[in-house]
């Protein structure tokens, strides 16, 4: 059964401040959503609310067709921080996340070596993560999306610190995930370079949003 993500009249606060409200959308399997907006307009808050790391102030988020209707358990969240240990090697980090996270029903993660190759970083799997450059670290953090299967990817500024070729490679990863019937929600300043992706424009404290074709 294909997955389907419902966001109904969502609102969130940070402390007393209302960050956004009245966000409603439906994402079908194979659809992507790019969240854009100025700094501080609530992109990260939106993603953290979707991933269950911040409480919902009003409305609700629902996932159909995955193993559980809890979106957090069926999603990958790639935040500003890479969730990798500097002291462990790249392979050790990825093997750990693969074992710890497991696969959601409906798909399988790639073997660690294949994921490292897919990110274009073959041959450095034995290095401690802390030795890598910022861009390489970011790419390795993306490998986590591949080693454990999750139908929904929630990506916060995924391409920060990446060069142009890595941007294209990442666009390829996202396209591949969408073709397999996944859902991608990405907050970004740069266009991802993927056709047919919808856009959610956050406008800051006014809490109004506009959805438009990309």
């Amino acid at each position: 059964m294909p997955v389907k993500l419902h966001v109904e009249d969502l609102a969130a606060r940070r402390g007393e401040d209302l960050i956004f409200q009245h966000i409603s959308l439906v994402l079908q399997a194979g659809e992507g959503l790019v969240v854009t907006g100025a700094n501080g307009s609530g992109k990260s808050t939106f993603l953290r609310v979707l991933s269950g790391l911040l409480p919902v102030d009003a409305g609700r988020v629902r996932l159909e067709g995955a193993g559980s209707d809890n979106l957090a358990e069926s999603s990958h969240y790639l935040g500003h921080r890479n969730a990798m240990k500097r002291e462990l090697t790249v392979s050790e980090n990825l093997v750990f996340w693969q074992d710890f996270m497991g696969d959601s029903p409906g798909g399988r993660g790639l073997p660690v070596e294949v994921a490292i190759d897919a990110l274009g970083l073959s041959g450095i799997g034995h290095l401690p993560f802390g030795y890598l450059s910022a861009g390489q670290q970011r790419r390795m953090a993306m490998a986590r999306l591949l080693v454990a299967f999750r139908p929904v990817w929630l990506l916060d500024e995924p391409t920060a610190a990446l060069d142009a070729s890595a941007d294209r490679m990442f666009a390829g990863l996202v396209r591949g995930h969408l073709e397999q019937g996944g859902i991608v929600v990405a907050a970004t300043h740069q266009p991802l370079g993927i056709d047919g992706v919808r856009e959610l424009r956050m406008t800051g404290f006014a809490g109004v949003f506009a959805e438009a074709g990309y």
Binding site: G52, E73, Y77, G79
Partner: peptide, 13 residues
């Protein structure tokens, strides 16, 4: 600090 806690909080475990 390195964001691992976010991922752990989201798991089914």
């Amino acid at each position: 600090e390195d964001g691992s806690l976010d991922v752990m909080l989201m798991q089914e475990t």
